[in-house]
Write a protein that binds this DNA or RNA. Sequence first.
RNA 1: GCUCGGGUGGCGGAACGGCAGACGCAAUGGACUCAAAAUCCAUCGAUCGCAAGGUCAUGAGGGUUCAAGUCCCUCCCCGAGCACCA
Length: 775
Amino acid sequence: MAYNFKKIEAAWQKVWAKNKHKIWAAEDQSVKPKQYVLDMFPYPSGEGLHVGHVEGYTASDVYSRFMRMNGYNVVHPMGWDAFGLPAENYAIKTKQHPEKVVKKNVKRFQEQLQSLGFSYDWQREINTTDPEYYKWTQWIFVQLFKKGLAYEAELPVNWCPKDKTVLANEEVVDGCCERCGTAVERRNLKQWILKITAYADRLLNDLDGLDWPERVKEMQRNWIGRSEGAIIKFQVVSSKFQIEVFTTRPDTLAGVTYMVLAPEHPLIGKLVVNAENVKEIESYIQKSKNKSDRERQENKEKTGVALKGVMAVNPISQEKIPVWIADYVLAQYGTGAIMAVPQHDERDREFAEAFHLPIIDKPLIDKETAIQKAGGVKKVNFKLRDWIFSRQRYWGEPIPIIKCPTCGNQPVAEEDLPVKLPNVKNYEPTGNAESPLAAITKWVNVKCPKCGGDAKRETNTMPQWAGSCWYYLAYLMRGISNFQFPISKYKEVFDHWLPVDLYLGGVEHAVLHLLYARFWHKFLFDIGVVSTSEPFKKLVNQGLILGPDGQKMSKSKGNVVSPDEMVEKFGADSLRLYEMFMGPLEDAKPWDPTGIVGVHRFLGRIYNLALKIQNPKSKIQNSKLDQLLHKTIKKVTEDIQGFHFNTAISALMILLNEIEKQPEAAAAHVPTIAKLLFPLAPHLAQEVWKMLGNKGLLDHEEWPKYEKALIEDAEFELVIQINGKVRDHVMVKKGIGQSEAEKLTLNREIVKKWLEGKPPKKIIFVKDRLLNVIV
RNA sequence: GCUCGGGUGGCGGAACGGCAGACGCAAUGGACUCAAAAUCCAUCGAUCGCAAGGUCAUGAGGGUUCAAGUCCCUCCCCGAGCACCA
């Protein structure tokens, strides 16, 4: 009988689905040690699950099942990150409510995940678009507002003209919208902003204690971009104004030959009246304003204009130096002005060469002395900017603020949360600073919670990233009650489960979600909601699965592999096993369409082996096989702990190859194989377990232990080298001494031949390994 | 330009400084079959040799070592991230 994976998988999935998958329910109170295994939850897109999802979700499932069998109380939840542009754009196109689209997509994702046999605690399922969920997203916003960490300000922001919304700095890649690729424009708009910069130092310093991939930590470090320097003031000649600059190189102060202001610098308006070339200056400023950020970045050729007649004084040399305006100086960083040291700074040199400014070589001064002499103050600067938090779109959490003409911005009270998204006729963005919600006057017009007068609701919504900033807490809250106030109810479960022990997902969230979530978590720590300063202790990134052509999978390239198709053709176990076998979890690797056949055959052979066992109670042993079995237990255990699933699988394959040579001993060994295989290929492992006459679920079985004494070999193959090259082998007993090994070696024909009767020059002996004869 | 990762058979990949290429795919030959598929068995880095066996091989070149894919130096190539951040 052939390995009927369809029948087997359907049957066991039915068993698991009983009682809402209660076999995988985590216990909030347990004497067992806890383990929080978290997947980055998916955006339930219309395309369904991707093989990349399957990779990460399989890895975390293998680990969860393994930890359960090792006696841990594991919480392994799943949910949906369902707010955001794709659902909304789809809604606009098809005139359907995004909620309907999300519902449909979620159903598909649930079916797909269950068809792969993932052991999620489905009772804790969450959806960020559920009002009971976003009630809490709004609650956290209110807390941020109350602590002054959410504020409104008008500032130049990134505007995507296609999606018609503001974007955060993190959402702009190479000057383009991260979602749609359209070049981003700069607009001055009043926006809600979260003060992530208040946490810059802690976000940076606490990275050191995290068990995360070094490259992700490095990306966050670069993004936060801390630099130490000083603020130094330069007096403008015959004027009351001073130009402030930030520099990391006060030691080069003597070499400053000119200064540069960013075109947006507020002082320009005041200085320009004294300049001789007002028209020229105005035209330059206008020109740079018209440039998009992308154009400014692309054009590395330096442009600029002098403030003719305006001079500043070098505080060290007292020399008068010219003042220029140039757009290579950024308004948003430092003070928006620089002191230029063309001798030491490449950009300053380029500019000086282009505009024939002096380049002088003065000796460096001691840093401290320079700051003191120039009357400066030490200052730490960050590249990180505050998080622009409003979006002018429909499908997001409404910002829970009421705008009162007399009282100003008032937060919505806890008992009035959630502020539900109203139904609208048109989801189309308005194209100005308001979301489509602004058109719903019935919803917009409210009474001020403070004075009771007429007021209006904030109509902007939160960005895509809001809901995912705290979802790992939501799973825990879900366990005890349905998201009820007050927050203190949840203190105990947070303290029990946090931090997340293992967080698995793609590297693409390195500076977005992972930075935002750390920020919110630290805030929640500060206000006493959680007791750990970091949310995710260990992070593992799965590598990208590339198309068979080695290119990134994309619809346009036609190289997308569908998990559904693989499940249909080879089964869930084969797909899971293949994705784990392809290569190291963290590496990018191409999909080999024929490769899955190999693991499928392996599973089929295990099934056939179990089928052939006549007497499952047979105790026929084979000492060599038994030893290999225990070595395999050791290898698989250590490899799963270290996420080396590919080598764990190959160890199981080696074991099977050997057992097939001694089928009479199979009955004694196959049950252990079933246990070892269970985390990786749960359906077949469970089926084999049953075929061998066992009742019950492998979920409740204990992970096999190996016997140390058994895996110790009595003998080993001594490698004999002549001049470092392998020439011979001989089986000897373990622990053999050097003199005995030498005697044995020098008597061997091959060695005698190489020695040609001469005595060896030198002999290297490595215990229980090799003997190297130097001739 | 800067910062991280990487370069090992036809392919995916193994390898505490100690037998390079485990395991799998593909390929080739064979068994079974009227035939094919499936399955099973064998071979499978290159090269010289009838064979025994030898030689060369982990991006390139040097070095350390009895011994280097692994450690050190120089360079080349690929991937990712950052990029006028003062």
